[in-house]
Every structure is written in structure tokens, then in C-alpha cells.
Computed example of a mutant assay.
Amino acid sequence: MSSPTPSQTPYKLIFFTPPTSLSACKSAIFSTSLCGAFPLPNRPDTIGYKNVCWETTGTGQFIPGEDSTPDIGERGKLEVLEEVRVEVQVRGRENVAVVVEALKKAHPYEVPVYEVYKMEDF
């Protein structure tokens, strides 16, 4: 099996959001049509599945700093809240940048928390 070309290299985007913003964040990233889509085996030009992601709920915390403008919480006070962790695959580094930008525009936090990992195909 050959290695993926740079535009096909798989990445995983993970982000955290309050449950009230989950739908808006997912709509934003999936509207790019660049993530959460998988071809059918041996048919790379097809889209077998769309809007594929994994989610789990957990607890996050932060203290907004004096210079922040928090959407949730108050400056200088510990905020503990339920958050949803969402994982989605994106193929191609250039596509990751587009998807992350869409996420940032939809996300309620002043500084959205997200991670991007380069993955390997086996």
C-alpha cells in the first residue's frame, strides 16, 4: 500500500465546547465539507459516510484573567462547567486550517481549546 499524498494525510481535530454550543460548532466544521467524510473501501472517489465524529462529556475549568472578556464565567473566579469533547478526522493539512477557522468563528470561547494531531495510515 502506498503512503498518502500530502493532501490526503490524515489529521485528527479534537475540540472542547459547552453543550449549548455543540450543534453550532459541528454545523460550522461539517459545512466546510472537508472533515468527517470517509470513502468506501477500494473506492477512494466515493463518500460512504459524512459528518462522522465522536463525542464524550466531561468537566472543564478555567479562571478568566483580568484582560479577558469571557463568554462564560467572571474574571478572577474559577469556573467549572460541563464540556463536550469532539473528535473528527480531516484529510490534508490545508483542509485542517479551513476547518479550524470555521470552528473558531462558531465557538463561544474567546480562546477555543482544540488540538490537531497528524495520524498515520496503516
Results as ranks from 00 to 15, higher is better:
residue 39 P to R: 02
residue 39 P to K: 03
residue 39 P to Y: 01
residue 40 L to H: 11
residue 40 L to S: 09
residue 40 L to T: 10
residue 40 L to C: 15
residue 40 L to Q: 12
residue 40 L to R: 12
residue 41 P to G: 11
residue 41 P to F: 12
residue 41 P to N: 09
residue 42 N to L: 14
residue 42 N to G: 03
residue 42 N to I: 04
residue 43 R to P: 01
residue 44 P to L: 01
residue 44 P to Y: 03
residue 44 P to R: 01
residue 45 D to S: 15
residue 45 D to P: 07
residue 46 T to L: 10
residue 46 T to R: 08
residue 46 T to I: 08
residue 47 I to F: 03
residue 47 I to R: 11
residue 47 I to P: 11
residue 47 I to K: 15
residue 47 I to L: 07
residue 47 I to E: 06
residue 48 G to F: 12
residue 48 G to Q: 12
residue 48 G to Y: 07
residue 49 Y to A: 14
residue 49 Y to F: 15
residue 49 Y to C: 09
residue 50 K to R: 09
residue 50 K to F: 08
residue 51 N to E: 10
residue 51 N to Y: 11
residue 51 N to D: 10
residue 51 N to V: 08
residue 51 N to Q: 15
residue 51 N to R: 10
residue 51 N to H: 12
residue 52 V to A: 06
residue 52 V to C: 10
residue 52 V to H: 03
residue 52 V to F: 03
residue 53 C to F: 06
residue 53 C to A: 10
residue 53 C to Q: 04
residue 54 W to M: 04
residue 54 W to K: 03
residue 54 W to Y: 11
residue 54 W to F: 10
residue 55 E to A: 01
residue 55 E to D: 12
residue 55 E to G: 01
residue 55 E to H: 02
residue 55 E to M: 04
residue 55 E to Q: 09
residue 56 T to K: 02
residue 56 T to N: 00
residue 57 T to N: 03
residue 57 T to V: 07
residue 57 T to R: 09
residue 57 T to S: 04
residue 58 G to C: 02
residue 58 G to F: 00
residue 58 G to K: 01
residue 59 T to H: 11
residue 59 T to W: 04
residue 59 T to Q: 14
residue 59 T to N: 11
residue 59 T to E: 11
residue 59 T to Y: 03
residue 59 T to S: 12
residue 59 T to D: 04
residue 60 G to C: 06
residue 60 G to A: 07
residue 60 G to I: 01
residue 60 G to V: 02
residue 61 Q to H: 08
residue 61 Q to W: 03
residue 61 Q to P: 00
residue 61 Q to R: 12
residue 61 Q to Y: 03
residue 61 Q to C: 05
residue 62 F to C: 05
residue 62 F to W: 05
residue 62 F to V: 06
residue 63 I to S: 06
residue 63 I to W: 01
residue 63 I to L: 08
residue 63 I to Y: 02
residue 63 I to D: 00
residue 64 P to K: 01
residue 64 P to V: 06
residue 64 P to A: 08
residue 65 G to I: 05
residue 65 G to W: 02
residue 66 E to W: 05
residue 66 E to H: 14
residue 67 D to N: 13
residue 67 D to K: 11
residue 68 S to Y: 04
residue 68 S to K: 13
residue 68 S to H: 08
residue 68 S to L: 04
residue 69 T to Q: 11
residue 70 P to W: 00
residue 71 D to C: 13
residue 71 D to Y: 05
residue 71 D to E: 14
residue 72 I to K: 02
residue 73 G to V: 07
residue 73 G to C: 06
residue 73 G to E: 04
residue 73 G to T: 10
residue 73 G to S: 11
residue 74 E to P: 00
residue 74 E to I: 15
residue 75 R to C: 13
residue 76 G to Y: 08
residue 76 G to K: 14
residue 77 K to M: 13
residue 77 K to G: 09
residue 78 L to S: 08
residue 78 L to I: 13
residue 78 L to C: 14
residue 79 E to Q: 08
residue 79 E to M: 14
residue 79 E to F: 12
residue 79 E to P: 15
residue 79 E to Y: 11
residue 79 E to G: 15
residue 79 E to R: 12
residue 79 E to S: 13
residue 79 E to N: 13
residue 79 E to H: 13
residue 80 V to S: 11
residue 80 V to K: 14
residue 80 V to R: 13
residue 81 L to R: 10
residue 81 L to K: 14
residue 81 L to N: 15
residue 81 L to F: 04
residue 82 E to I: 09
residue 83 E to M: 01
residue 83 E to L: 00
residue 83 E to D: 04
residue 83 E to N: 03
residue 83 E to V: 02
residue 83 E to G: 01
